[in-house]
Nucleic acid binder design. Sequence first.
DNA 1: TATATAAGGTCAATGAATGTCAAAGGGGAA
DNA 2: TTCCCCTTTGACATTCATTGACCTTATATA
Lengths: 143, 143
Amino acid sequence: MKKSLADKIEQYLKVLIDRSENYEIEIQRAELAETFDCVPSQITYVIGTRFNEKCGYYTESRRGGKGFVRITRLDDAEVQAGISRREFFVFLDQIMAMELITENENRMLKHLVVSSFKQVPGEIQNKLFLAIKAGLEDFVDLS
Amino acid sequence: MKKSLADKIEQYLKVLIDRSENYEIEIQRAELAETFDCVPSQITYVIGTRFNEKCGYYTESRRGGKGFVRITRLDDAEVQAGISRREFFVFLDQIMAMELITENENRMLKHLVVSSFKQVPGEIQNKLFLAIKAGLEDFVDLS
DNA sequence: TATATAAGGTCAATGAATGTCAAAGGGGAA
DNA sequence: TTCCCCTTTGACATTCATTGACCTTATATA
């Protein structure tokens, strides 16, 4: 794969995180931009597309003097713990209230989840709830 | 039989895959089109007809600068999972034709299945397909 | 406290790739 | 010959990356 600049910056940051103590690094946006000879907003772009929560990262930042960007990789527990059935149902009700899905779709999904998940090991269930939630968010975006 | 251009491109790509490390190659659509002196969408056509999941291949791609198309030859287990999924999709299309679910519900379920099931071990996927199918039959009965 | 300086954030424009779709072309079987 | 199905083509759509002008916020200093 021909690596784009964004790919290279991504890789660079991931190496830094791997080598870090707590899977957490702090960078200076402008300085990193200098290193890669690009505009600072390029760094923002990489962080926004490759290090967002969906990708299993959490970021904080501060502006002004002594500013920084901190990137934290969520550990497996945080990423994979997922959400409970109750939380998932609440989510369904919410997006129904927002008219992103119909009442029938809401009922259908609940029914499927209840009737099908008995066959799935417990630890995978919550992961699936989370994945389905993400998939739904995706789907209603597209619609 | 006379070989069409599509056949030649297919053969060319399969040689590349055979020679590759992990049965996986990456190409640039426009570049390959140039090589064969054809329009880029011809490449898309070859990939769509000769390197789809039914044929035992999986493809990914990225648009924009430094974009690419990646073709992976699936192993037997992956092919099996793909078959059960296709059967499930056919089932969805059938009950949509019977107007038991809407077109939107059909699309939604397919989307959820592809986006969520990556996280689930192969053996469980088949069970889930059957369970969801049963759950759906149940649900449309109630409605 | 007021002002200057030093960060990071936002957004829209542009360019570079792939995707989609419908129409036209061509070859083989009946 | 005719018809059907697979190919081939091209116009247009969508997505991703890159850049730069301008905005917001925090700190340092007079």
